[in-house]
Computed example of a mutant assay.
Amino acid sequence: MIRVALIGSTGYTALEVARLLLAHEEAELTVATSRADEGKPLSEIHPSLAGRCDIALQPFDPAAIAEQADVAMCCLPHGASAESVRDLATAGVRVIDFSADFRLSSVPLYEQWYGVTHPWPERVGNVVYGMPEFFGDEIAKADVVANPGCYPTSAIMPLAPLVRAGMIQTDDIIIDSKSGVSGAGRSPKLGTLYCETNESISAYAIASHRHGPEMQDLIHRIAGKPVDVLFTPHLTPMDRGILSTMYARPVLQDNDTVQSVTSRLMDELRKTYRDQPFIHVVDHLPATKHVVMTNHVQMTVRVSGPNDQPGRVIIVCAIDNLSKGASGAAIQNMNVMFGIDQMMGL
């Protein structure tokens, strides 16, 4: 049985980890920590766990956690997580980090976008990105895994294979994403109050969202080609889910038509993900309802153009931001790390 520690237990991602572990046949939650709520049962923080997961919240003590857990799910905020990850890894606990502290490939890039000095800089660029579809062999051996961002997952999954195959131009990629309110976290904020978000949709962090450089960095690492991404996120009045619509220019061949380009792009995605159980290249237009409460991804391609002349490639991808965009991906990564079926518990 894989013993799991939950570090920082009060947020939505922590609740989702606990919920998923209750159904996991080969893993169990043995430790949960919280600096603010030490001593309280986890079910007092998350009432939906009452009678199912009532373990008491402990202080953060890496040595004690190492005696009780094989892997830690670190759900602490960006900038605060890296030090705890370092201490846990040093104590011999394998770690899946939910923050962005180890996702990017360089310290200057991280410090530019997150505005803090990294406490474990020698590991930046040396931590595997937690996307088993591309980095499964590295994840299996890793002591620390950087769990992917939610928006980046919805963009990287469809874009990286097409960039790698040279099928879309890399200098003009537009990503328009819409997310449920849970993506903003559980802490109260004016912009995510019910009266602010209900019956409304709004753009935010235009040309300044921290997930933009993560998308560029990871597509480059996977595809081996730099890309120029323009990313705009939107907040939508739903609990969970992300729908990303991406626009790019196709790389054309002689006598290409809208149909031929569409078929070629869809075939490339199907070839890339034919052995990946969570990724589905579909003919219909994906919607968040199709993937909510699951670790599954749906994506498809359309091509626009007058008189059957290809103009723009339009890619649509749907994920659940709390599952494949966070906690489900972490469970999938844990399964790969410990050599069991990656679908277990999912």
Rank of each mutant, 00 (worst) to 15 (best):
I2H: 02
V4D: 04
I7V: 15
T10P: 03
T10D: 13
A14M: 06
L15Y: 10
E16M: 07
V17E: 03
A18P: 02
R19L: 12
H24P: 05
E26D: 15
A27L: 02
A27R: 05
A27P: 00
E28F: 03
E44D: 10
E44F: 00
D54M: 09
I55A: 06
A56I: 08
D61E: 12
Q68G: 00
A69H: 05
L76P: 00
G79Y: 05
S84Y: 03
L88D: 05
T90F: 00
R94F: 01
R94L: 07
V95C: 10
V95T: 09
S99Q: 07
R103F: 00
L104C: 02
V107N: 12
P108G: 14
G115V: 07
H118F: 03
R123I: 01
R123P: 00
N126W: 01
V128I: 11
V128Q: 11
G130S: 07
E133D: 07
F135L: 15
D143P: 01
V145M: 08
N147I: 05
P148I: 15
P148K: 11
P152M: 13
T153W: 03
S154F: 01
I156V: 14
M157L: 13
I168M: 07
I168A: 01
I168F: 01
D172G: 06
P188W: 11
K189F: 01
C195G: 02
E199G: 00
S208T: 07
R210A: 11
L218Q: 10
G224W: 09
G224D: 07
V227L: 05
D228M: 09
V229M: 08
V229A: 06
T236G: 10
M238H: 07
G241E: 08
T245V: 15
D254C: 03
S263Y: 09
M266K: 15
D267E: 14
R270C: 04
R274C: 10
V281K: 05
V282M: 11
H284R: 14
H284S: 11
P286K: 11
K289V: 10
M293W: 14
V303S: 02
S304D: 06
S304G: 06
D308E: 08
D308R: 08
P310I: 07
I314E: 13
V316P: 00
C317G: 04
S323T: 12
K324S: 10
A329I: 01
I340Y: 00
D341M: 10
Q342H: 06
Q342R: 13
M343Q: 15
G345L: 09
